[in-house]
């Protein structure tokens, strides 16, 4: 230790510090100027992609392939198992589904469900719109809504069904009540988050041209928050659809007017597994259609086109 910490000069004469070699000068080069030449056709040529490449570039095509793959697996497993009580094949399910749609036994249930869903959804969204407007116009309103949202958002809508049954009895209104609860908080949460995220500059440039009050909200805040609002509507829709089917399963008493959930429940009672599958198939199909056709079309025309979402 001592030797190490002692100055070097004590042991031996100091080594001359190596002088870093001066960096070699880069070679001298002549200056020149050029004027850009015509690049000819090279920049403009567009070679069309091969057909297969274009096909696989298409998202719809790729996803359709996945769907077909699932259907094939389903069919193969069903045939191998050969037990229509436990696991009907894809073709059996499809047959029951098409028959049900044609005869009206299934399509009627679907329409009943969709009607209730639409009532609940529209009411929920309208209520959310009103509450959010209240929340952004006053600070107290904002506080109240924030607390309410924090309280009710984690509460599964279906958990309110028993209460709804006590208050409103068996009937459409109980389900609508539960649906409103499912939609309302998701939409409120997203919409108010979207409003809060509107850039200050955009707000000021809106007020600069003299916008205020309702016009300011509808012409600046709402379009600026449209990505969040759409996300809220999508989540609200998914909540509502799940809640509805679940509520209908529980709520099977007035079976004459029962919807899709009741159809599934009834099919189970009758041990018609193909019908259960057909009902589930309908639930999935409608979910997919709304999500990937309706909402996707709205997004393509709005937020994607405006560059607010990729």
């Amino acid at each position: 230790m001592i030797f190490c910490s002692a100055p070097r000069s004590w042991l031996r004469p100091p080594m001359p510090e190596p002088v870093p070699a001066a960096p070699a000068d880069p070679p001298e080069r002549a200056e020149f100027e050029r004027s850009p030449s015509d690049i000819g056709t090279i920049g403009a040529v567009e070679a069309p992609l091969a057909r297969g490449e274009r096909l696989f570039g298409n998202i719809a095509f790729r996803r359709a392939l996945v769907l077909i793959g699932i259907a094939v697996l389903w069919e193969a497993y069903g045939r191998w198992l050969h037990d229509s009580l436990l696991f009907p094949t894809f073709t059996d399910t499809l047959r029951v589904f098409v028959q049900g749609c044609l005869s009206g036994s299934l399509s009627g249930r679907i329409l009943t469900s969709l009607r209730v869903l639409l009532i609940g959804y529209v009411a929920g969204v309208a209520l959310a719109g009103m509450l959010t407007t209240l929340a952004i116009s006053t600070r107290t309103g904002n506080d109240i809504l924030t607390v309410l949202t924090a309280m009710f958002n984690p509460l599964p809508a279906i958990a309110l069904l028993p209460l709804a049954l006590i208050w409103f009895g068996l009937g459409t209104f109980s389900i609508v009540f539960v649906l409103i609860h499912g939609v309302l908080w998701a939409v409120v949460l997203n919409t108010s988050a979207g409003f809060r995220a509107v850039p200050e500059t955009l707000r000021m440039s809106g007020r600069n041209v003299g916008l205020s009050g309702v016009r300011y909200v509808t012409q600046i805040l709402m379009p600026a928050a449209s990505a969040s609002i759409l996300a809220g509507l999508k989540i609200g829709w998914a909540f509502a659809w799940r809640t509805l089917i679940a509520a209908e399963l529980v709520f099977g008493v007035s079976s004459r007017s029962g919807g899709l959930g009741w159809y599934i429940f009834q099919a189970r009672e009758e041990l018609e597994t193909a019908k259960v599958f057909a009902g589930l198939f309908a639930v999935i199909l409608i979910g997919l259609l709304v999500e990937s056709v309706i909402f996707r079309a709205i997004e393509a025309r709005t937020v994607r086109r405006w560059g607010m979402q990729r």
Binding site: P199, T201, L202, M204, S205, N208, V209, G210, L211, R215, Q219, I220, P223, A224, S226, T302, W306, G307, M308
Partner: peptide, 30 residues
């Protein structure tokens, strides 16, 4: 007020949901 039009530093001052023409025409409409 529109008598004192402001140009900001941030690019967010344009409304992304309107075309360039729509953005320029909007204050005149309002």
């Amino acid at each position: 007020g529109p008598g004192r039009m402001m140009v900001f530093q941030e690019f967010e001052q344009l409304m992304p949901w309107k075309t360039v023409l729509g953005n320029v025409a909007f204050p005149m409409r309002v």
